[in-house]
Design a protein around this nucleic acid. Structure first.
Lengths: 356, 356
DNA sequence: CTGAAAGCGCTTACAG
DNA sequence: CTGAAAGCGCTTACAG
């Protein structure tokens, strides 16, 4: 026979009923050792590799798969170390489920295929806030799929949101600079909108902002330095941090500004951006922290950075793990609450009193 | 009613048969507009979100999911830009399928849950070679799941393997150095074994090597410089590249070796390692390429690196896309052949004639 | 400890 | 264009 063998074939060959054969595989019922052995032997002879997961998941009502909705395509999502850690935490958090992670493209992409609209998932984790989170939530609610958001903004009572103290944490970083004596402080921000507009931040850009995290962290900086000029970076990367910093430290022709016309410190909204700021400073002949203090955000180790960055250490993995644990709870029919984590100010060697 | 509505409920409410309701949703048969509308209206009233993917996949015999087997846990896998690009290419290649990607942990990890042994996948892509690839292939063969390997080494006729010219490409990079006049060349390699042993490479380490890529690239370097000393890095990262390079450029106390006792060029087996080599050189006061030439491998843009790295540009995304396309072909019942891509030597500004 | 029966929710030939 | 029927492959109460 060329068709793949089924449990019925195995049962027939072993001379038992399908029910008994099923029990022999799942181990969830009493089967005599002798029978079990006979079933397994028959399976081996037939080349039967175990119960079909599709049939099992229909029957059990569970697929054993947890979906993760990424904001962008795979490539861009995994360029961000924080997102990777979060994903790793999710994998950890759902470990008791023994479920695998299904990468789901953000709806709105033209992917006709598996989306949150029809993927065989038992639960979904939404990563990152976005104007379209609302729409995703609606679809998932309708499908009755338990959902957890990470930094999803307001989600409603049925969807736990796992977040961090973006504003408070940034404020603490800013206060650290203020205590060192800094008065002229610039900010290098993450993107504000889906178009990832880069360059000096003005009221118009702030008004059309859709990225909660960027706004909250900017507010934290402004809580201490209300007049701080800000420059938006297109992506969270060293290179874009470098470009943004040059707008704060150099003139149009790329020459370093005189000391009284440039900030003595820069608050970057991510560690990758901060690494770019440091790079820009050093290229312009400015020492860090002597002539420029730099504060980051995230607490990742930037590969290749030779500084101990002063930063707000956020628990990315914990965030993911908490989301995973919330999924486990929801699937067990238990309530799962929203949760806000606290970031820790790590004082490294990139901040010091200003030279003047 | 509190239970989730089914297609039968919708059909009943619309006053049609289940078959017709099914057709209204799938669009794969002739249904009058009026009937279709009635069905959709009934679905809306009942809050029916569409056919259950589990039932559909059982009936159709397809789940719409392609599994990707990673060598390690999520975190480590996504630290490697080449792997991310490959994944992105796979997503691209299987796009016609409209299938989603399921991240499967390498078997052998203790994950009890969804593995290649029982995940509801239509096909699987194995990324990266490893001693355990053989075992994975056996399981997948038994399950009758079409499989494609990327750099999987010898896989057998039924499993297409997508690879690149690791040895030839590296040899071309080495020849470029030879033509520039280099005679004393060192190599910084990727890991040889699962334990990721780092440090000077000796015969014993080479003998127990399990990573095909590392071996092939080392052979390519030895084709031109048979005596080249090699140092293994634990991971493909800037930091580990820096540490390995120091073993070739400095003495035990960290002082730079005299010119006649250190290589004039280093071949690194990845661009991240090459960036680390450059970093080490600059920290030791050596100029690149004046006092040290550096060749990388991969052709990724290393975030923050201010050099135009001389490297072997490998088509990572194409590799992934080809694997995805092979999956599409296998699922269509067509044959899919193994494929070897060619890398291109990109001559940047990190190689020059040796000073002496 | 084992078996007969029902059914998970859908799709697909097959008639009409 | 629409409906009745069978069945995808399994698991789970329920009897015995």
């Amino acid at each position: 026979m060329t068709a793949r063998p089924t449990l019925a074939d195995v049962a027939a060959r072993a001379g038992v009923s399908a029910s008994t054969a099923s029990l022999a595989f799942s181990g969830s019922g009493p089967v005599s050792d002798a029978t079990k052995e006979r079933v397994l032997a028959a399976a081996a002879e037939l080349g039967y590799a175990g119960p079909d997961p599709r049939a099992r998941s229909l029957r059990r009502g569970r697929s054993g798969i947890v979906g993760v909705v990424l904001e962008e395509r795979v490539r861009s999502a995994f360029l961000d170390p924080v997102k990777i850690r979060t994903l790793d935490g999710i994998a950890d958090g759902i470990a008791p489920l023994g479920a695998a992670l299904l990468l789901l493209p953000f709806i709105g992409g033209e992917s006709e295929g598996a989306t949150i609209e029809d993927a065989p998932v038992d639960a979904v984790v939404l990563i990152g806030c976005s104007p379209r989170v609302g729409h995703s939530l609606e679809i998932l609610r309708r499908r009755g799929i338990p959902t957890v958001a990470i930094e999803g903004g307001p989600t409603g009572d049925d969807v736990p949101d796992i977040s961090i103290d973006n504003r408070d944490a940034t404020r603490r970083g800013a206060e650290h600079l203020a205590e060192l004596g800094h008065r002229d402080v610039g900010v290098v921000t993450l993107a504000f909108d889906a178009e990832r507009t880069s360059g000096p931040v003005d009221a118009a850009l702030e008004a059309r902002a859709t990225t909660q995290v960027t706004i909250e962290r900017l507010q934290g900086a402004r809580d201490v330095f209300p007049e701080a000029p800000a420059v938006a970076a297109a992506t969270s990367s060293v290179e874009d941090g470098r470009l943004a910093a040059r707008l704060l430290l150099a003139d149009a022709s790329g020459r370093v500004l005189p000391a009284e016309r440039r900030p003595t410190a820069i608050i970057a909204q991510s560690d990758l951006l901060a690494a770019g700021v440091i790079l820009a400073a050093e290229e312009l002949g400015l020492t860090v922290p002597g002539e420029l203090s730099v504060v980051g955000f995230d607490g990742i180790r930037v590969d290749g950075l030779r500084h101990d960055l002063t930063t707000l250490d956020q628990p990315s993995t914990d965030k993911g793990r908490a989301a995973g644990e919330a999924v486990v709870r929801l699937l067990a029919g238990e309530p799962a609450a929203s949760l806000a984590f606290t970031s820790t100010l790590h004082i490294g060697d990139t901040t010091a009193p200003p030279a003047r």
